[in-house]
Design a protein around this nucleic acid. Sequence first.
DNA 1: TGGGGACATAAACTGGATTTATGAGCAACG
DNA 2: CGTTGCTCATAAATCCAGTTTATGTCCCCA
Lengths: 307, 307
Amino acid sequence: MSNGETGEQREGSIAHRVPDLGALELLLAVARLGSLGAAARELGITQPAASSRIRSMERQLGVALVDRSPRGSRLTDSGALVTDWARRVVEAAAAFDAGAQALRHRRDSRLRVAASMTIAEYLLPGWLLALRSQRPDTAVSLLAGNSTTVAEQLLSDEADLGFVEGLSVPPGLDSTVIAHDHLIVVTAPTHPWARRRRPVPAEELASTPLILREKGSGTRQVLDAALGGLARPLIELSSTTAVKASAVSGAGPAVLSELAVGEELSMRRLVRIPVEGVSLARDLRAVWPTGHRPTGPARELLSLTRG
Amino acid sequence: MSNGETGEQREGSIAHRVPDLGALELLLAVARLGSLGAAARELGITQPAASSRIRSMERQLGVALVDRSPRGSRLTDSGALVTDWARRVVEAAAAFDAGAQALRHRRDSRLRVAASMTIAEYLLPGWLLALRSQRPDTAVSLLAGNSTTVAEQLLSDEADLGFVEGLSVPPGLDSTVIAHDHLIVVTAPTHPWARRRRPVPAEELASTPLILREKGSGTRQVLDAALGGLARPLIELSSTTAVKASAVSGAGPAVLSELAVGEELSMRRLVRIPVEGVSLARDLRAVWPTGHRPTGPARELLSLTRG
DNA sequence: TGGGGACATAAACTGGATTTATGAGCAACG
DNA sequence: CGTTGCTCATAAATCCAGTTTATGTCCCCA
């Protein structure tokens, strides 16, 4: 077990190895503006503060990030790469912020949204971010639940616009399809199915124990319907995350929304298994009380979700 | 311009509105372990510190995240959602960390990788993360450049394994295809092309001024080859990010790797424009000096990049 | 050759997070 | 029915990291 050669910190927690969000944001500003001072001004700090922050980031990473000259600062090659990676962190943080803001407000919001879990988790933060950039003054509140609670919120006028992912539209609501989602079968790369050359037929899928969400979840409903109520659970878990983790660890094949596993597929922690003879497609819909066509901020948000 | 109703901070910088990475990491640990104290232990801090950190995060976000009981802590519904969003931030930070670690090249690294920009930017951090989870003791160093510099590194034995995205394999190297990439045409949703129903024919693409990377970049080479050297630049920019930003702002159609625009497409900041009559596909390849088949850590990494 | 922009350095300040040291609620077990 | 052991909360002292203020240096340009 070769120990750290250059005084490596063998700590857990990445938080000590990654600059904080403020520093990453500053780096992005420097990249964009080409000057430490200008970046500092934009973020409302003084120039020495920016200088020292960048410097300590360079010390922490062990890489020179910016070439300082008396005439401005440019990123080094490594700095450009680091900045690109940093941008992804900051974007994720911005999505977090947009979601969290919406979760806070309750009564006095101008736009009250109710969404089912998968949409709230994967899609909504992005939409809220886009909405904020177009209409910065729109205060949004978010309530997450399942299709039933979304319908209740809308019908009791506690929400202005809803998003659901089920098979059918709850009664009393009008809807429009905003996107298509597919449930997909995934396994760890080590699973035997990952080496198959031919798709898994429906009957085999139905007879194989699968890692599944609990009965009653939208995902499970679609799968049961597609297989004719036959899905055999190997384990039932109550969150998408738990299902993913279980599949990654090689426990067996899992069925999940493709929205949930983009990252895992692209870094090969999971492998998509083709299936034939079943349609696991489902529509993602925006919904509103029959007749009350969305207007104002609701219409605005709706238009962001479609091409 | 209705001002903030609930004492809203109209500040810039999201860093002040988003809990720091340590707090997000702590939240994930609490979610996983079901106890503040256990999470604190895992992260090497004391229980009161964890308690106060979570509490101040709840105060900052204005949302209750965990239900504390004398018998442990469970996430609230909102807390579960926040945790899912937090996970994405932490994962981006982990990728950042993996990349940054590799950038501070040290002579004594066990695996020296040279990669072209697109791969280094979008794919490599994920691979390094996966590699670290399998072989925690493998010290990796990364050198980013273009196809030519990658070849030079390999041939002068300054790198053990390379990744290139060009059309051809540099002489003196063996290679294997590890993935396929497509250049795609994108515009802002407001662009006239976004409303077309039929694909854009090759001739029209060739005769339309486009937002492009500079001549010499891998992306540009592929496009020029596909169009027969005819691509007409509207602007030439030196980074993928600049091209994206320009396209998002509506300046015109841009041509980019699909790897670069996943996020933008899914939140509709950009729209993919179908094209016909040109093949903009390109292979992503792992390369190594002819004969020197990758072994050890290099083989390990290579196997992570393929199905 | 002086002005202005951009970055560096030094010292004092400030605030938030951490630790240490407790207290209190609940459950299981003998 | 108390004891033990887990949980989380609170209070006070400590400590460190980032910031500001106040300069200094370098370079370009007029």
